[in-house]
Write a protein that binds this DNA or RNA. Sequence first.
DNA 1: GCGACAG
DNA 2: ATCTTGTCGC
Length: 227
Amino acid sequence: MTTVRIPAGWPATEDQARAVQDELRGRVVLDEPGPAPGTGRVTGVDVAYDDERNVVVAAAVVLDAATLDVVAESTAVGQVSFPYVPGLLAFREVPAVLAALDALPCEPGLVVCDGYGLAHPRRFGLASHLGVLTGLPTIGVAKNPFTFAYEEPGAPRGSSSPLLAGEEEVGRALRTQKGIKPVFVSVGHRVTLDNACAHTLLLAPRFRLPETTRHADALCRRALKAT
DNA sequence: GCGACAG
DNA sequence: ATCTTGTCGC
């Protein structure tokens, strides 16, 4: 397991963090289709915390997009870099995720984040932030609708409905399993929303959550316990 | 002003 | 995110 390094000048206050978001937001690319679903590699990233000890562990798990077999994985440990503040989650998770991605023995391909990208109060969630910092195509798949509104999608697997910030579609509520609560997909960097949903559906053939986040979640929890 | 609020 | 037993079901 490698070690997390917190960059010099990492935001110490909420205002500084929002200023960084404003600065990076202009670098998001939204007009690329992204990798073709079902081909190449797809990587899940997730983070676990022990606030008592101030410890954070991140995991990155690379899957073959066609078979969903695990082809590589890595973990990183470090100190917590920012408190949890709704809207500023990236500042808590990004340093650890970057370290885990750096430790991978291969290219990650599309990165699937636990949380949001464009569907964010300031339109710059975790997936957008990670995408801009790495240049990699990223998407966000969240378990909750955050503050956004949506109509319940149809019951069949694959049904979806817009995730709305007023009139603006910032993401999609996507039913990955028949009759089960949808997941909330949004674009991070260099991927289209349609493409992000297609990837998510292929990654969740049996469970509500994508295999990428299931693997990454299990790995970072296991690694945290071992720390 | 108060409550809600990804992980 | 995390605190947490048993339990129902494939």
